Simulated assay, not measured.
Amino acid sequence: MDWNSLNVAASVVSAICAVIAATVSVVVFFKARSGDFSTKIERGDMAQKKHTDRAVTQINSKLSQQDERMGEIEDSLARIEQQQQHNLTARDLGPLHEKINGVALQLAANTAATKASSEQLGVIHRLLMEKRT
């Protein structure tokens, strides 16, 4: 083997070693970066879980407040319904209206009769007054 061949062989071996070193470096880099991504994803997941837990807690709190308000409204409505049982309804007042209407008709008739009697008495009074004079 001559010196040139040895030089070429050394260059080829050196180039192969450089390619292997670069490949190993890239693999190690991606391996290390994938762990970083996993860590970032896990941190993001934890932050998202905390946010979701806070939101769920707030929603549950608001729902319990709404339940309390609904309970108060239901109690108030029950009291009102109980009080309404003692009040008169239109059906209860119907016969009373009929009686009042009957009384109003009788009053109108009495008023007409009283007016007629008053006019008759007025006529009699005038006649008597004319006879005197």
Rank of each mutant, 00 (worst) to 15 (best):
G71P: 08
S118A: 15
N101P: 07
E119W: 03
H125R: 09
I124Y: 04
Q83H: 04
E81Y: 02
A109K: 09
A90K: 05
L88G: 13
A108P: 04
T111K: 12
L107G: 11
P95A: 00
S61I: 06
A78Q: 06
V103K: 04
K115N: 13
T89I: 02
A78N: 09
D92M: 03
S64K: 03
T89N: 06
Q66W: 00
Q82V: 09
R126F: 01
R79K: 12
T114V: 10
A109S: 11
S76H: 05
Q120N: 13
Q85G: 05
R69G: 12
A116D: 12
L128S: 15
A113W: 01
D75M: 06
G94A: 08
L93Q: 13
Q85T: 12
G122H: 00
H86S: 15
V123W: 00
E74Y: 01
Q66N: 11
Q85K: 13
L107D: 02
Q82H: 10
V103A: 10
K99A: 09
Q83N: 09
T89Y: 02
L121D: 15
E130S: 13
L77F: 01
L127W: 02
E119N: 15
G71V: 06
E119C: 07
Q66I: 01
R69D: 15
H86P: 05
R126I: 02
L105Y: 03
A108L: 06
L127F: 02
T89H: 04
M70K: 06
G94S: 06
M129G: 15
M129Y: 05
N87F: 07
L105R: 08
T111G: 08
A78W: 00
H86V: 11
L107S: 07
D67G: 08
K115G: 13
M70T: 15
G102T: 14
V123M: 02
E98Y: 05
Q65P: 03
V123D: 14
S64P: 08
K62G: 11
E119M: 07
Q120C: 08
T111Q: 11
A112H: 04
L107K: 14
L77I: 10
I100T: 06
Q66A: 15
G94Y: 02
D75W: 01
P95E: 00
K115A: 14
I124M: 08
Q85N: 05
E72Q: 14
G71N: 12
Q66M: 04
M70S: 12
E130H: 06
E98K: 12
G122K: 01
I100N: 12
G122W: 00
A112D: 13
G94L: 04
V123I: 11
A108F: 01
L63N: 14
A90G: 13
R91N: 12
Q120Y: 07
E81W: 00
A113E: 07
A108S: 10
K99N: 10
Q120E: 15
I124F: 03
T133G: 09
K115H: 04
